[in-house]
Structures are given as structure tokens and as C-alpha cells.
Amino acid sequence: MPSADPWVGSWRPHRPRGPIAAMYGSPGPKYSLPGLTGEKLHCVTKFKAPNYSFGIRHDLSGSPHFSISPGPRYLVPPNITRQGRDGTPAFSLHSRPKEPRIAQAPAPGHYSPEKSTKSVFRSSPAFSLSGKTKEGTNDRVPGPATYHLPEVIGPKTVVTSSAPVYSLCGRSKTGGFAEDLKKTPGPAAYRVVDSCLYKEKPPQFSMTGRNFAPGETTKKPGPGAYRPEMVTSTKSKAPSFSFGLRHSEYIAPLIVDRTE
């Protein structure tokens, strides 16, 4: 069936076969739902399975349930089995250790029971003329001359009352009858406190010069630089002539086509 719409070049307007996004005012399928795979932008309303990464293992040394062990870094010698050494001969470059001596107990003839009279039987005191050894003097207490008792005579007594004492020192010149009063500071030596600190401060003025704002430094024309008699923009002007160049008579006139 022929259409009544005119052709636009080689194309003729017709009804679209499917929906066109320009025919609707909404953004259309621009907004999409969040995905259900991956860790980021996962849908919060759906179940999320656990995920694993190839990151580093965090330090768990601060946890009380973490056992710190060196791991399999110990090198077990090859001659050690679960029952001990295997018994094969081993050689080294060290010297042979000395064999331990057997404890030699004294025989019955080594004892002298006759010399134990002071330990077993009562004996009289015995004295010797030998010098006293230094190792036996363990009680090192100070003698009577080591202590120093406080003084009881003079002004510095501690346990007794002292009488007034006098000295032969020189008399101080300050406060005495020989004091020179001319050396005392005068009224000008004291610093007077400014009354503005505890009273109302009046306005203050200074004698400094007046500061002018910076102006333009370009040169301006004076009143004599202007010529009002030559102004022709506000009043009528008389005709003026010039001795300009006369055009040649042999120049072709301007020809303009006229249609009647």
C-alpha cells in the first residue's frame, strides 16, 4: 500500500519496527542492578560466598592462642634415629679427653685419732706468741676517738643554750651614723608608672608629617593650553577653502547604468 508521506532523498518516513529510546522521556535501561559475583559492588540483598585472596599472612604473634614455633628449620643429623644414635664410629679432629679419675678414699692408716684431743676431750686453754692474722678480725667497729660530740661553747651549740657573743668585725656603713646620705637615689631614679595603665587613656596626637595618598604622576595641560576660539563642534562654522590639488578634466566620469 503506497504511503502518503513524501520521500526524503532516498528514504521515506515509516513506522518503526521496534521501540526507540528517543520516543521515551525516561533514561531507559541506563540503571543496572548490582552484580552477584565478585567482592566489590555486590548486591546487599543476596547471599555472598566467602572469597579468598593471595595476600600476605598477617602477624598473629599478639594473639594468646597463637603458638610461636620456629617451624621445620632444625637440621637433624643423619645418625640420629628415633631410638638415639645409630652407633657408627665417628671421628673428629679434637684431642682425646682425659679419663675421669676414680675417687681415692683415704686408707685407715691415714687417720690420726691422737690429734683429736681438743675436739673430743676437754683441754686447758693454750696461748701463743704469734701475731694476730688479719683474716680473723671480722668485727671492724669504730673506736671511741672516732665519734665527735657537738660543741657546747660558742654560738653554734645544739644541746645547750648559748650566751650572746660578739665579734670584732668592722661596722657596716649602711644604716650607721657614718652613712653618706648623698649616695641615696633621688626622685628621678625611680620609674614613674604611666597613669594610662590604671586610668582612662586620653587621645594622643603626634607631630609626624602628613601622609598623602599616591596620585597620578602624568603631566596635565594647563588653562593656557586650550583654545576655545577654534572649537567648531558647538557653534556654526564659516566655509573654509583650501589650496588643494585640482583634478584633471580628462578623467573619465563615473558611469552608472540606469534602467527605466
Rank of each mutant, 00 (worst) to 15 (best):
K182F: 10
R15S: 12
V192G: 07
P29N: 15
S67D: 12
F47D: 05
N138Q: 09
H148F: 13
T232H: 00
V44L: 15
K134T: 14
R210P: 10
I68H: 08
L93V: 11
R73L: 10
E179A: 07
G222P: 01
K118G: 05
G244D: 11
S32N: 13
E39D: 06
D257G: 04
Y111W: 14
S95Y: 08
S63E: 13
T184I: 08
R171W: 00
P34M: 11
F91P: 01
A178H: 04
Y226I: 07
S167R: 07
R227M: 13
A225G: 08
N79L: 08
I251S: 07
R140N: 12
S123M: 11
K134A: 08
P253G: 04
G9K: 06
A103D: 13
H58E: 11
K156W: 05
W7K: 02
V165S: 13
P6C: 03
S236R: 11
G84D: 02
P77K: 10
F54L: 11
G186H: 01
M1A: 15
P164W: 04
H65A: 15
S61C: 04
S130A: 05
N138L: 11
E200W: 03
R57Y: 10
L254N: 07
T146A: 15
N138R: 13
R57D: 09
P34K: 12
L60Y: 10
G28H: 00
N79Y: 13
S112V: 14
T174I: 15
C169E: 11
Q104R: 15
S167P: 00
I20C: 03
M230C: 00
L60F: 09
K156A: 05
T45W: 03
R73C: 10
F177M: 09
V256C: 01
S162H: 13
E260I: 05
Y250H: 08
R122D: 00
H42F: 11
S95R: 12
V152E: 09
S167V: 03
S195Y: 07
